[in-house]
Design a protein around this nucleic acid. Structure first.
Lengths: 252, 252
DNA sequence: AAATATCTTTCTTTCGAAAATATGACATGC
DNA sequence: GCATGTCATATTTTCGAAAGAAAGATATTT
């Protein structure tokens, strides 16, 4: 018997609530589920950069057939996480220091402009969203610091809240494109940032929480130039550390 | 008998030259060919905005099967030319004045930054490329003006050279991402621009060729601020005209 | 008549196999 | 020994059909 649908059992006691998450993370189609899982695994380094992504392997790993996998890989290709050559299949997009800096500087260009516009147009809801996102992020950071280390699930939660905070800053820029490009570049840079978090100094020589707080405060005070400068410095500082890490353990 | 491959007859008298264009425009796979043809047809307005793209229809129109079509549609979705809702298929992305302006302003942000960097880093080859692209564009523009109207093939040639010119300006920006984003936004704005060219005033109240020449001259003279201002004004002027056109013939 | 349930039709999504290509090993000729 | 051609295998790409969901039509109940 085949099992096509991810979302099953609608006729049961449960109401047909679209928000309920199933095992695939709420995806309505297998292709969507494959997209999310593949992206997650690439960013997390489950597949090493430049590694070929053989369809047979993916088929077994995810229990899916060719079609949804190919759809997912095609989408990831346009997002620069997957590389492909005609008739030679797919592979994880390679990494390099140059690409990392390109992603970083492009992100700075996009997000700084988006932040300026958000500061110009932001309303009370926008401010509340920033404060809330910062607080949620801060809680998770403290939890990590208290526990010393961090588990996989907690790392995912931390990363989600980190992205939510940075997105909350720019969400009122009134440009769908700026937000989408920023989201995409977040994932690209995340790929470089995550490996450095794994094998790293516990008490870093850097107070990331403070940087976030300063960005938030300048933003809420509507000091555009200062907020933008802090944001750019924040990203460049991270990338400098990542670069140093990559030079020690190159082409991981 | 099935015919899978686009590129056939390699064993014949012809050398195996990868640059030779076949009927699919040099695509090595059917999925790639489907991607190009679909994009072309969407931009050219063969499919109206918001129109559902039924797979059965596309299958007949392009003589392809589901798989390559779905791959193409998935890629076009991440490029904002196609919209999709899970289990409800694909449709042409809708158009609106707001979206047009968002695409325009984002493009200005990206291309102005890329132009500044190109001016900073450009070498002799870069300058030669700009001059060559401008000349090729100019020839085609004069050809159009001389003939009065323009055929479909000539319009495609004109658009290609137009894109080539604008790309030549920014090609030395040393950022793959800026160039890729600019390419994508070019296609998005092209969608809005093309319909206005079809039903339009012959001798427009605007000398586009002159605008191009001024942009080129400021660029070659390395006057960054002026070049960037001219480029932005160039794009905004076009979009203003497109907006006027759309308000007369809304939601075409 | 209105609301609800059931059926039909239409379309999307997924699968598994078939076809085509690339890759690498092996043999052959120079 | 080196280049060239041929064959076997691994992999991608494509197809056609089957399964599953959505939308609309029809029947049934209140």
């Amino acid at each position: 018997m085949r099992r096509y649908r991810v979302r099953v059992g609608r006729s049961g006691a449960q109401p047909a609530n679209d928000e309920i998450l199933d095992s695939q993370g709420g995806a309505a189609t297998l292709a969507e589920a494959a997209y999310r899982r593949l992206r997650q695994d690439i960013v997390a380094g489950v597949f090493a950069p430049s590694q070929p992504l053989r369809l047979e392997l993916l088929k077994q790993r995810y229990g899916l057939s060719f079609s949804p996998l190919r759809e997912a890989l095609n989408r990831l290709q346009t997002e620069r996480l997957v590389a492909t050559a005609p008739l030679r299949g797919f592979s994880v997009a390679p990494v390099s220091i140059e690409e990392m800096w390109d992603a970083t500087e492009t992100r700075i260009l996009i997000e700084c402009e988006a932040l300026r516009r958000s500061i110009a147009h932001g309303d009370d809801d926008w401010e509340a969203g920033i404060v809330a996102a910062f607080h949620a992020l801060d809680l998770q950071v403290r939890r990590k610091a208290a526990a010393g280390g961090i588990g996989d699930d907690e790392l995912i939660a931390l990363e989600t809240r980190h992205q939510d905070f940075h997105r909350a800053l720019i969400v009122r820029c009134r440009s769908r494109r700026l937000i989408d490009i920023a989201d995409q570049l977040y994932v690209e840079t995340q790929r470089y940032r995550l490996p450095t978090l794994a094998g790293q100094n516990p008490a870093a020589s850097r107070d990331v929480a403070l940087e976030h707080r300063e960005i938030m405060e300048a933003t809420l005070a509507r000091r555009s130039d200062e907020a933008v400068a802090l944001l750019a410095a924040h990203y460049r500082r991270t990338s400098t550390l990542v670069e140093a890490y990559m030079q020690n353990a190159p082409a991981k």
